[in-house]
Amino acid sequence: MRGPSGAGKSLFLRAIADLDPNEGDVVLAGQSRDSLAGPQWRRLVGYLPAEPGWWADRIGSHFSDWAKAAPLAARLGLPAEAGDWPVTRPSTGERTRLALVRALAAEPKVLLLDEPTAALDVNSVLAVEDLIAERVAAGLAVLWVTHDPAQAGRVSRRSVIVSAGQVTDEAEENA
């Protein structure tokens, strides 16, 4: 999903994750969102915001089992000791990758990504794209917000543009 800043992309993701009051029905594999409690729904539909939050002093405390999450972190170029880091230590790019690992470790069925590679160097971008592609092949559904048309071309099966509250399919727009 692409579109100018302020077009409502993040609000749309927040609405799907049911973080703000919103209208309309969302269905996941035949199950309506309203039939599930909020926390149950959000365990199925993970969301990685552009600026992920941290609630504990150490990185590792944000994972139910850091040892299990460490191999995932290693694939994104983060050392196993990162679990002992204070949350103030990692850079913005490292924090985004750690939050991605945190979201994946919860094993959602759907993952909403809000510009997950905006703060990353080229190698990390490719590592993130690889990891997500692997999860998608294993059945994860991903809604990916990006500003980079090249990235959209690499990772998307279907591409939409959001502008002034309207969603258009990119294929239709080009036709």
């Binding site: 926390p39 959000r42 915001p49 600026e51 939050g53 941290w54 609630w55």
Partner: peptide
């Protein structure tokens, strides 16, 4: 002040 931290837990399915 701790909105991001609280919502981070909600996003992961916390009550």
């Amino acid at each position: 002040l701790r909105r991001a931290a609280v919502e981070a837990r909600l996003m992961l399915g916390a009550t």
